[in-house]
Design a protein around this nucleic acid. Structure first.
Lengths: 209, 209
DNA sequence: GGTAACCCTCACGCATACGTGAGGGTCAGG
DNA sequence: CCTGACCCTCACGTATGCGTGAGGGTTACC
């Protein structure tokens, strides 16, 4: 199973990302409305797709390299020109990627989809894929929620250190610390800090001199 | 920011992982109780640590290579011998790794911890690190929860396909499908499927012959 | 002392998802 | 025509976290 990606710290995409094709696309596009397809739809170049989707140009190229995305057309000078559907596609790729799917797995999905004999058949296959991902995602959320609780507990535990511990105390003394509520054990996120460096808590030295 | 790891499908660690050092450690250990340190504590060899922590032996070695873990001692034949604290340490590494920290970042934490002038000082630094991770984790959970909702919506949407769509319909016809509730838009996880391959929904061909 | 089950130390391999130039056109406005 | 802002096509580079032998000891038990 692939790791689930972490959300970037910087805004991954311009504010509105809810509607499938929103106006921000056109807002960006009007800097470069120069080509339209036969349906009169504005075509975007790769930089526009990048801005709208929050991906880099290189990433878009990469998606094309692995067969996940094709430009609708090329300009006379071989510039890639994309239709609006490409925006959906790139966002879709991003979401599945965030869900932990690798690009080749996404490729697999696309192939499955396109090779399906009939529409309902394709849909049921997709449903199965999404259903499994849903379960994995829920498990992942539960896992993170559990880690979240551990973080909270550890922070609470560490808070005590600031209030009751002698500021002159050394970290090595923490293993003998008795300033904490002894009813509950030290959080693992704290206990992992001391120890593991080979020096046992209780008696040390004399074994590896 | 590093990606947050996905939980393995296979059980990552033997059932009980709540208490810092539980009996399962000793249960595993009794297969190989052969060495004890000066405090009489049973020492484990690398394979035991691996079993207890759910990591591979190679991973444990790797942690040592990057300086995150040291055996308490070595046997006469250069076998690594670990104390119980090592179990905590390995689990701790695993958790921080699951939280999206790279091994070098974890290293950084250890260095910060060990270099701190005083215990309360070290604790407050740790608190800050954990606090930030907590926020990132919450954001990540929110992000996944949002994707979870999208998955649910998409599954619901795809369910309709199975009931109302003509089984003879081809997938290419999905773009013109009108069997769905038109009040809400097609989920992005579905719309990403058709399109993006360069063939615009409405009119096609005639541009790139 | 034979054997199974471990463990040790190199040290190269790998998969992912782009990053990062290099070297060189293209487009639109002034 | 010039210029700035883009875009194109190679194609090698990178960071992570171990995996995977190779070649060879070590332990413990029978």
């Amino acid at each position: 199973m692939r790791p689930i990606r972490h959300l970037p710290v910087a805004p991954p995409a311009p504010a509105s990302c809810t509607s499938a094709v929103d106006d921000s696309v056109l807002a960006f596009a009007d800097e470069a409305i120069d080509v339209r397809d036969d349906a009169g739809e504005a075509l975007l170049q790769v930089g526009d797709i990048a801005k709208v989707s929050g991906k880099t140009v290189r990433a878009i190229h990469h998606y094309e390299e692995v067969g996940l995305l094709q430009p609708h057309a090329r300009s006379k000078g071989r510039y890639r020109l994309y239709d609006q559907a490409a925006v959906n596609r790139v966002r879709w790729i991003g979401k599945l990627h965030d869900l932990g799917l690798s690009l080749s797995q996404i490729q697999e999905i696309v192939r499955t989809w396109e090779a399906a004999p009939s529409a309902p058949d394709a849909m049921s296959r997709m449903r199965a894929v999404y259903q499994q991902k849903l379960e994995e995602t829920r498990a992942q959320i539960a896992h993170l929620a559990s880690l979240e609780r551990e973080l909270e507990a550890s922070i609470g535990y560490l808070d005590d250190c600031d209030t009751v511990c002698d500021p002159a105390e050394l970290v090595r003394a923490c293993t003998n610390c008795n300033h904490h509520d002894k009813s509950r054990p030290e959080p693992e996120l704290v206990s992992g800090l001391h120890g593991g460096n080979g020096r046992a808590a209780a008696v040390r030295a004399r074994v590896t001199p």
